[in-house]
Structures are given as C-alpha cells and as structure tokens.
Design a protein around this nucleic acid. Structure first.
Lengths: 163, 163
DNA sequence: TATTGTTATACTCTATAACTATA
DNA sequence: TATAGTTATAGAGTATAACAATA
C-alpha cells in the first residue's frame, strides 16, 4: 500500500447551528439580514438532507416548478426569473433533458426553445413537491399557520427598496 | 490584432428580481423556504453592492463581529459558530491578518491560537457596522420597527425542529 | 489517540466574454 | 445590429482528506 495510515479526515460533517451556547452575537442579533441568512442556512441544510437522494436542490426544484406553471418559457426568461446568467440555465436544462424531465421544443423563432416538462417530469415533480412540502412543514414546524403566513408576508416586503 | 471583433459579452449584469410580472410561481408562493431564499438573495445583492468597495461579505463581516465580541476565540470554535469547515477559517483569517485587522495570539495550548481584533481591526469594524446598519435599514425599509422585531422573532423559530 | 491548524485537492455554483445561428 | 443559446474559462466558496505539531 502507498502509505500505512488509516483513512482519516476531520470527522464531524459540517453543520450549521443557528445559535451557539456562550457566544455573543452582538449587532448580528439586531440585523434582519443576519436573521434571514441564518434561517436560510438551516433551511438549506434540511433541504439538502431531505432531498439529496432525489438529486434535487432548491434551485433545481424552482426551475421545474416555473417550467411546469409557465409552459413554453424560454431559457433567457427562465434565467431572469431565477436571477442567474443565461449560461447557467444551459447546464440546468441539459441535466434535466438527460434525465428526461424537461424537453426543449421548437418555438417560432429558431434561435430559441420552448421549455416543457415531459410526462415523466410531471410525475417526478409531483413526488418532489410532496417531499418539499414535508421539508417545509418540518423547518416551519415551530410556527402556526397564521405565523407562517405572517412570515411570508413580512419577507415579501424585503428588498423592495425603491423601484 | 488577434481578432477584429469589438469586446462583447452578454450585457445586463445578473440581477435577482424577487417577483417577475406575468410569472406563475404556484407552490413556491406558499413555501416558507422559498420566501426566505428569495429574501436572502435580494439582501445579499444589496449587501454586495453596498460593501464591495470595502471587500466585505456577510461571511467576513460576521467573522469580525464574532471575534470582537468573543475575543480569544479559537479558529475551530469560530468554524463551528460560522457553520463552515476549519479549513475555511484558515483563509479567512489569513486574509484578515494580511490586511492587519485580526491577529493570531498565543494561547496556553501551543496547537491553537487566540484570535483578536487589532486596533486597526476595531476601527475598521466600527465603519463596517455603520455601513451594514445602513444596508439593513435599506432592505428592511418597508417594515416598521415592530414588524422588524416580529420578523426576526419568527425567523429565529425556524430550523428548530427537534434537538 | 485526539485535537488544532494547515495544506492539497476537488467540486459546485455562477459570472463574463466570446462564438454561432438566427432575426 | 440585436438576440437566444452555447461554450470556454475563471473565480469564489467550501468540503474532505491527509499531514505536522502538540496534547
């Protein structure tokens, strides 16, 4: 063997703990931005854990939902909606096409495609939605239905600074 | 010249628009996770825009605040608080040390360091805090003080699923 | 044996720029 | 000239694994 050591590594997988005992967060506790970021990290971690087996990320899930509910959308438009560069959409759609969930159909304009879910894509997305709802219920478990609605409402007011 | 073309590129910088006209978001509108992610993207964008000149990211800002308010903290502990790998902290601190904001001081245990802000670090952080508060007020501008507190409170209840 | 900091490496995400085929 | 999709490339960010020094 190349070396006589046992396989090592750092041990504990990296985990985000929203609030650590005995740590003074000072100003961070007063910032809306930090609270959102902290929540987002916890949520992302749970999403990844819950849906890694499905090879699904929040980004990929959102793409499927947008395509399903806005059938025929173009890649450029999808990029705008997702807030990413057009080049990023290419690889996302490539991957979905390989796994047979999305297809690029002809549009009138031969420069662009109309994106659609395949039958298989619709079927899979239904499953994904169920899993994502379970995940969302889990992470929002501490909140009543009313609080949940209130939270979504407050979050929607954020980042609306001027036009 | 190597080629006769004018410098081109895709044009419009990538920008995240929380909600696009004429798009159906379906289930995404009901998910706490999506609302948080959407808000987080808007906030991050404003933070980056406001503080890029200071070479500051939310991550780097948080590190400085944690070090200031928990002086003598070790790199491993800081990694835990930030929810990143220990190896990631090394480069963060390296950079702060180069720019003279943080210093690694001896601890009793010769394997580890005690992290401290330098005098310059304290001075800079004071400036950063002012800028970050302005940024936070801007992105939370649509909210009253009460709503802001309410939002932070609700966000804190998230991701507290079981122990 | 375990821990701290470190380095090497790799992977993902995403941006920018340039290219092509169309319009 | 402008636009849609594409490719090439590069830069963050961050993880894992392995290592040296120390406990």
């Amino acid at each position: 063997m190349a070396n006589g050591r046992k396989p090592e590594g750092n041990g504990e997988p990296v985990h985000f703990n929203a609030r650590m005992e005995g740590i003074n967060y000072e100003i961070l506790d007063e910032l809306v931005g930090y609270a959102v970021r902290r929540a987002q990290l916890s949520i992302y971690e749970d999403f990844a854990f819950s849906l890694a087996a499905e090879d699904l990320t929040p980004q990929r899930f959102s793409s499927l939902v947008i395509i399903e509910n806005n059938p025929g959308i173009s890649q450029t438009r999808l990029a705008e909606v997702m807030g990413i560069a057009r080049s990023g959409v290419v690889s996302i759609i490539d991957r979905f096409e390989e796994s047979g969930l999305v297809e690029r159909k002809e549009s009138g304009d031969r420069r662009s495609y109309n994106l659609h879910l395949t039958r298989e894509g619709q079927k899979q997305l239904k499953k994904y939605k169920k899993a994502v709802r379970e995940h969302d219920d889990r992470i929002a478990g501490g909140l009543s239905a009313a609080e949940r609605q209130q939270l979504i409402g407050l979050l929607r007011k954020i980042g609306q600074h001027q036009a």
